[in-house]
Design a protein around this nucleic acid. Structure first.
Lengths: 145, 145
DNA sequence: CTCAATGCAAACCGTTTGCATGCTC
DNA sequence: GAGCATGCAAACGGTTTGCATTGAG
């Protein structure tokens, strides 16, 4: 994504444009996997962008609350992970052996939510699914199948 | 559940029968909601069963690994919750307002897993679903609908 | 100029661990 | 008696917070 578009997203959200916000959005937009606050902090330091961890946390918080990025909390991860918000509803598959995370861009639950709602007292507004299993490599490694 | 049955479960799992293991299983079996390590610790103290928090953690760990209880990690809870393992596959609904947790004893994903598997390189062995929304009380309170 | 963003250091909180002692089998 | 379970105190790791300083609009 172009820098100008990143800045537009920040300003459109009513946020101040700062160095770290631009940097972090850029970085997440380019990343092809989920990143933790610590991952992001390390990457920035490696790029000679000196920044405090607490600033990274505060930035991620702001961007999450403004729906520019998503905070993902997965079972067995003791930390939050972040992704650029591409506005496409999706879920994850997690390898129980190597912890690789793959995205599923498809959702089986749209009609089911209505059904559940009819049966319950809850007004359902969303859901989260995680699939567990073994990725291709680990199936081989562990000789599963 | 009778004490003798609890003890049977412990012994059958090849574990030593100890005071706290019996106590904690009993407590979780009777509980009608999910409990945290800290909840359990407090309840035991209140019942005049003096026990260290670290022992509670170690006990919960052992029981989880032996499938006598389940460890549940829900989004937005920064701590693990535990339930007695009734061996029935189920999911949870979480109220975004009051955090009430309700159980859904029904699963929409059994066939879907096969489909996803055909489309991907993963060998899927399980999944987890959380539904978010508003419970009956909070719908009223917040005047939703 | 004002208020929000940042750096720094310290606190927080759930959880884990090392070690000496106690208990179950 | 051997080895696991427990208590105690301390560490751990991700995250948050208070406060003084800097920077964006």
């Amino acid at each position: 994504m172009e820098k100008t578009n990143i800045i537009k997203r920040i300003v459109d959200a009513g946020l101040k444009k700062t160095k770290y916000r631009v940097n972090i959005i850029d970085l997440l937009e380019k990343a092809d996997n989920l990143l933790s606050a610590n991952d992001i902090h390390s990457i920035l330091l490696k790029e000679n962008t000196k920044v405090d961890l607490s600033t990274v946390y505060r930035t991620l918080d702001k961007l999450t609350k403004n729906n520019i990025i998503n905070r993902i909390e997965l079972e067995k991860e003791n930390k939050s992970l972040y992704e650029y918000n591409r506005k496409k509803h999706h879920h994850f598959m997690i390898c129980k052996n190597c912890n690789k995370i793959e995205t599923i861009y498809e959702c089986p639950l749209s009609e089911y939510e209505e059904k559940i709602q009819a049966d319950s007292n809850f007004l359902i507004t969303g859901h989260k699914i995680e699939f567990y299993g073994y990725c291709k490599d680990c199936q081989k490694k562990l000789k599963i199948n």
